[in-house]
Design a protein around this nucleic acid. Structure first.
Lengths: 325, 325
DNA sequence: ATTCTATGTGTAACCGGTTACACATAGTCG
DNA sequence: CGACTATGTGTAACCGGTTACACATAGAAT
């Protein structure tokens, strides 16, 4: 593998000139530029990324920290991040935090030693300080960290408001809301949306349970609740996976969906469409969320100005098979 | 951030000694070791990964190349790889190849410039040579590349054989096999398994269609086929996602699952369990697949001997709601 | 004509590690 | 007792880039 010195020698110039040419910094005469380019082509030179990082204290690595890639919401996000990272010449490192602040912190440290260019984080929230001290470009994805850190997020409140309203409009009188973990801001915003929609009407009874974003817990809690409260005729959930749990609970209780009970999820994971019946839901533009986060991060890395610190991407109600539209 | 020279000075020794101590190579006297350790603790020294990579031409990055993290089979795989990578001190770079050999090749080159320690690849096959020339540790995951390259794979043949047999045993007389893309070896092995099972019996009619591993194509082709051949009473597919497509087709045609028609998938993606009814399938131990691949890669990186070049992980028939067991 | 500025290029130090080699000491063996 | 080996440590070159600074030239401004 040719080095910059080989190129310099071959072109009959100094390494500094080659370096300037490569980075487009400083003056390089037209003839010289040609000669250098020629040498580069001849020798099939490619720059050594590691050596470069050592002096510039900057790599083209992007750290993507998320709770668990296994949660169906995240692969699409990761995919989007990777796609735009690639087009800008960055490479993404995948980090599963398991909602564990300690793990999150370790990853951050490890990556800093590698001079990562920046972070995209769906944070476990507990450790805002870790991020505040970090003098690296970063963006918070799906979950805000601090007002000073750029954030890309769906309009959660509006989404749940829409889904709740639609359930009400299609005749539900006893509405169960399966909340997410409310210490996560996006979950509590969704709850707020639900409540706002409920506040608009009378004569609709409100039921609540809380579950994490996992299938099992949702399934069990919904089943228990429905057994005790058979009058429930509509379920809004805070995630699609929770909706899947609810569907299972209803199916096992012999309830027909959407005839006896309507169900609407939240997220718009791809698998929702593949279900039979397909899942009605509030679709977040997951890909866009990820793509925007990546673009905003890269803007920071490349010192371009940001228009805003808060990017909200709209959300869309999708009626499919589990609601009576 | 303290450097190795700071540590050396603080401990009153030379950098060489510190380096030896850090890497456990060469002789270091007991007293000296103590002094050095002391200095390290005092200064809170952490080694600079980039500088180290520059001389050793080796990083602790692992390249994970797979077709598309968005395909539900892969997140669990990625998760497993990441988990074991983490415990051994490696970091994983996520690369989506889109089954595009060109993209795959680019990633390999980019990562080589970063001195990656090795690759785990679910390859797009077309470019065996790219890998053969590569003088890096690597392992083929789910899809063999070459007999000389360690490979971790499920027993695909046996799996499809099992699922087909079980459909036959539960009374199917007209069996439709939804094949995958046969240029992918694991897909053609599955097909082989199907055929072996069919060869064991008479009086069971065989139907074939081919689809990629995606929902839409499977849905459309199955629907068309079933419309033309309403006698089909069982479907075995080459992937769970294809099974989802088949389920949708059947549902739309008014067929009851599993009463009118039984369906069995292949893969064991987590979402299969969340369906209602839950999907019968041949479960690959996806996590194990990924974890083994990672371990085998790391063994190579750390120059430990491999017991074998071919690791087959068993597969398990899981009867859930879409078959009459 | 003189000074100033913009342009163009090279020298050498530096980033933070690793390691070949030289050198020193001390115990062992014949 | 001299030669040999195992142990312990330091010097300095090296990995492959970047960049501050010095120096040179030429046209523009005064």
């Amino acid at each position: 593998m040719a080095t910059i010195r080989d190129v310099a020698k071959h072109a009959g110039v100094s390494v500094a000139t080659v370096s300037r040419y490569l980075n487009g910094k400083g003056y390089v005469g037209a003839d010289t530029a040609q000669a250098v380019q020629r040498a580069i082509t001849d020798l099939n030179y490619e720059m050594n990324a590691v050596a470069r990082s050592l002096t510039t204290k900057q790599s083209n690595l992007i750290g993507l920290i998320l709770p668990d890639i296994t949660n169906p919401f995240f692969p699409e996000l990761a995919r989007a991040v990777e796609d735009v990272a690639l087009t800008y010449g960055y490479t993404v490192v995948l980090c599963n935090s398991d909602e564990n602040p300690e793990k999150e912190k370790n990853y951050i440290e490890t990556l800093q030693k590698k001079y990562v260019a920046g972070f995209i984080v769906t944070s476990s929230q507990h450790n805002r300080d870790v991020y505040m001290e970090l003098k690296k470009p970063m963006v918070a994805l799906d979950r805000p960290i601090d007002a000073s850190i750029p954030c890309v997020i769906s309009n959660n409140r509006q989404g749940l408001k829409d889904s709740t309203r639609s359930l009400i409009q299609s005749g539900c009188k006893e509405l169960l809301f399966v909340e997410g973990p409310n210490h996560i801001q996006s979950a509590s915003e969704r709850k707020q949306g639900f409540e706002e929609a409920m506040a608009e009407v009378q004569h609709v009874k409100e039921h609540h349970i809380q579950a994490n974003f996992h299938f099992d817990e949702s399934y069990e809690k919904v089943k228990a609740y429905l057994t005790a409260h058979p009058e429930v005729d509509g379920i809004a959930t805070s995630s699609d996976v929770a909706a899947l749990g609810a569907i299972r609970a209803c199916t096992e209780l012999g309830l027909a969906i959407p005839q006896d009970i309507q169900i609407i999820g939240f997220d718009g994971i791809q698998l929702g469409e593949m279900l039979s019946p397909p899942l009605s839901t509030v679709r977040q533009d997951i890909y866009k969320l990820g793509a925007m986060a990546a673009r905003i991060l890269i803007k920071q890395i490349e010192k371009e100005p940001l228009e805003s610190l808060y990017y909200e991407v709209p959300v869309e109600l999708v009626h499919r098979g589990t609601t009576r539209s």
